[in-house]
Write a protein that binds this DNA or RNA. Structure first.
Ligand SMILES: [Mn+2]
Ligand SMILES: [Mn+2]
Ligand SMILES: [Zn+2]
Ligand SMILES: [Zn+2]
Lengths: 142, 142
DNA sequence: ATACTTATTATAATAATTCTAAACTATTGA
DNA sequence: TCAATAGTTTAGAATTATTATAATAAGTAT
């Protein structure tokens, strides 16, 4: 058998049925060395490039949200256009290049530890995320 | 005359024609003591409550984006659902209450200064924003 | 196998946002 | 003064992003 059994097992363990749609999406997202960022549209294109039979957009949304709920993906909101998803699920911060619309992980030591001195009472902190928006030096504010 | 002349002047100075739609939106957004956060939908509701004649949603978008471009508003992306706008245009960080979907400004001393040690070469930092997601203590992860 | 239950898919519907043609406003030059 | 014209703004129409739900498929029990 091929290495798909790995994904089949992971899906089963997570309580998700290992459908062919989900296995295909696993292969595209997780069968690689480095983590990466993508939009639903990016993923949709990757799927149609690598696959003859199509997966519906709604199924892609369903699958990505299921994976997010299980903790295999993080969602990152940068602007109102669309959501970015991240296969790096560790707590980390981001640079966002406003020229190229590229999202780039911060390294461990690119940024000081962010300390919250005073929290809202009765509330628990779920995440602390820093977003650094950058652009090329020549100013083009129109 | 009424205090509308203040907004008329500000609009003129900004190179924006003081239309009745824009003046109305100015009154709702800026004629108050404290800054606040709102969505386009929130604003749309406020307008239809306070006004007999309606302003088209597209015009609300146009106006808000024009004000943002002029620096009178900031846009904040929290989730993929919708954009939040902020009449507090200073650099500041946010708490986001995931139970109530409320966005709350951090105080000056709620959070340590965020220092960027290492930036992308050839790029200028436009903003550094921290988002702290909070929720009630009793865990309800479904 | 077959019936039954529950999860999943994907079409259809909705919500958020943007496009663009028509309406309006300001400027120019007789 | 007041067309003609150029530029701006509005808002209905179109598009894009996302979600709801009816149909389908997968798992479970008999
Ligand atoms: Mn925007
Ligand atoms: Mn979402
Ligand atoms: Zn990342
Ligand atoms: Zn704020």
């Amino acid at each position: 058998m091929n290495f798909n059994t790995e994904f089949v097992n992971k899906l089963r363990i997570s309580g998700l049925r290992p459908t062919k749609q989900r296995i295909k999406i696993c292969e595209i997202l997780f069968n690689r060395e480095k983590t990466f960022h993508f939009t639903i549209n990016d993923l949709s294109k990757m799927i149609s490039e690598k696959l003859n039979e199509k997966i519906s957009l709604a199924t892609i949304y369903n699958t990505i949200h299921a994976f997010k709920k299980k903790g295999y993906l993080k969602e990152i909101s940068i602007n109102s256009d669309k959501s970015y998803f991240d296969t790096n699920t560790s707590i980390h911060h981001h640079f966002y290049d406003e020229d190229t619309n590229q999202l780039i992980d911060c390294n461990e030591d690119d940024i000081n530890e962010v300390k919250i001195n005073n929290n809202l009472t009765g509330k628990k902190i779920n995440s602390v995320e820093v977003l650094i928006k950058v652009a090329s030096d020549n100013q083009n504010q129109n």
